[in-house]
Amino acid sequence: EWCEALHSFTAETSDDLSFKRGDRIQILERLDSDWCRGRLQDREGIFPAVFVRPCP
Results as ranks from 00 to 15, higher is better:
residue 8 S to A: 12
residue 41 Q to P: 02
residue 32 D to A: 07
residue 7 H to W: 13
residue 20 K to M: 09
residue 30 R to D: 00
residue 43 R to N: 03
residue 8 S to G: 09
residue 36 C to F: 13
residue 52 V to P: 01
residue 44 E to R: 03
residue 3 C to Q: 01
residue 11 A to E: 04
residue 24 R to Q: 10
residue 46 I to R: 15
residue 53 R to F: 08
residue 45 G to N: 06
residue 25 I to G: 03
residue 16 D to T: 15
residue 51 F to C: 12
residue 33 S to R: 09
residue 43 R to I: 05
residue 29 E to G: 10
residue 20 K to V: 08
residue 33 S to I: 06
residue 16 D to E: 14
residue 41 Q to S: 12
residue 34 D to T: 15
residue 49 A to M: 13
residue 7 H to V: 13
residue 39 R to G: 01
residue 45 G to V: 00
residue 24 R to H: 12
residue 19 F to C: 02
residue 17 L to K: 04
residue 30 R to N: 13
residue 46 I to Y: 09
residue 3 C to W: 03
residue 28 L to H: 03
residue 36 C to P: 00
residue 7 H to R: 14
residue 44 E to Q: 09
residue 40 L to V: 11
residue 8 S to V: 04
residue 54 P to L: 12
residue 14 S to H: 12
residue 8 S to H: 09
residue 55 C to R: 07
residue 35 W to C: 09
residue 20 K to H: 08
residue 32 D to R: 06
residue 47 F to R: 00
residue 23 D to E: 08
residue 41 Q to G: 15
residue 47 F to G: 01
residue 48 P to N: 09
residue 55 C to K: 07
residue 50 V to F: 05
residue 15 D to W: 07
residue 31 L to H: 08
residue 39 R to W: 01
residue 25 I to D: 03
residue 33 S to G: 15
residue 27 I to L: 13
residue 51 F to R: 09
residue 26 Q to S: 02
residue 47 F to L: 05
residue 22 G to R: 02
residue 54 P to H: 09
residue 23 D to R: 02
residue 37 R to C: 06
residue 24 R to P: 05
residue 56 P to R: 15
residue 24 R to W: 07
residue 41 Q to Y: 12
residue 11 A to M: 06
residue 42 D to C: 07
residue 25 I to Q: 00
residue 5 A to N: 04
residue 9 F to W: 14
residue 13 T to A: 12
residue 32 D to H: 05
residue 17 L to C: 00
residue 9 F to L: 08
residue 14 S to W: 07
residue 30 R to P: 04
residue 9 F to N: 11
residue 25 I to M: 03
residue 27 I to K: 04
residue 10 T to Y: 13
residue 46 I to W: 13
residue 10 T to W: 04
residue 18 S to R: 02
residue 45 G to L: 04
residue 38 G to R: 02
residue 4 E to C: 07
residue 35 W to I: 15
residue 52 V to L: 05
residue 9 F to S: 05
residue 7 H to A: 15
residue 34 D to G: 14
residue 28 L to V: 13
residue 15 D to Y: 11
residue 45 G to D: 03
residue 53 R to W: 04
residue 12 E to K: 15
residue 49 A to P: 00
residue 56 P to Q: 15
residue 42 D to E: 12
residue 50 V to C: 12
residue 44 E to I: 13
residue 15 D to E: 13
residue 42 D to W: 05
residue 12 E to N: 14
residue 51 F to I: 13
residue 35 W to T: 14
residue 50 V to G: 15
residue 51 F to A: 13
residue 43 R to P: 03
residue 26 Q to T: 05
residue 46 I to K: 15
residue 27 I to A: 01
residue 45 G to I: 06
residue 3 C to F: 11
residue 12 E to P: 09
residue 24 R to M: 09
residue 49 A to E: 07
residue 18 S to E: 10
residue 46 I to H: 10
residue 22 G to H: 05
residue 29 E to P: 02
residue 22 G to S: 02
residue 23 D to T: 04
residue 40 L to F: 14
residue 52 V to S: 03
residue 14 S to E: 13
residue 33 S to V: 10
residue 14 S to C: 10
residue 28 L to E: 02
residue 44 E to V: 12
residue 37 R to S: 03
residue 34 D to L: 08
residue 16 D to Y: 14
residue 14 S to F: 09
residue 45 G to Y: 03
residue 31 L to E: 03
residue 41 Q to W: 07
residue 4 E to S: 04
residue 42 D to Q: 12
residue 27 I to N: 02
residue 2 W to M: 08
residue 2 W to K: 03
residue 51 F to Q: 06
residue 29 E to F: 05
residue 32 D to E: 10
residue 25 I to S: 00
residue 42 D to P: 01
residue 49 A to V: 11
residue 5 A to R: 00
residue 33 S to D: 13
residue 25 I to V: 05
residue 47 F to K: 08
residue 27 I to M: 07
residue 19 F to R: 01
residue 45 G to Q: 01
residue 32 D to C: 05
residue 9 F to T: 04
residue 44 E to G: 03
residue 37 R to H: 04
residue 55 C to G: 06
residue 54 P to Q: 08
residue 39 R to C: 09
residue 1 E to D: 15
residue 10 T to V: 10
residue 37 R to W: 06
residue 44 E to Y: 06
residue 9 F to K: 12
residue 22 G to L: 01
residue 23 D to S: 03
residue 15 D to F: 10
residue 47 F to T: 01
residue 35 W to Y: 15
residue 46 I to M: 07
residue 6 L to M: 07
residue 33 S to N: 14
residue 35 W to Q: 14
residue 16 D to Q: 15
residue 47 F to V: 05
residue 39 R to T: 07
residue 22 G to C: 02
residue 5 A to W: 02
residue 13 T to K: 15
residue 8 S to F: 03
residue 10 T to L: 05
residue 11 A to F: 00
residue 23 D to H: 01
residue 20 K to T: 11
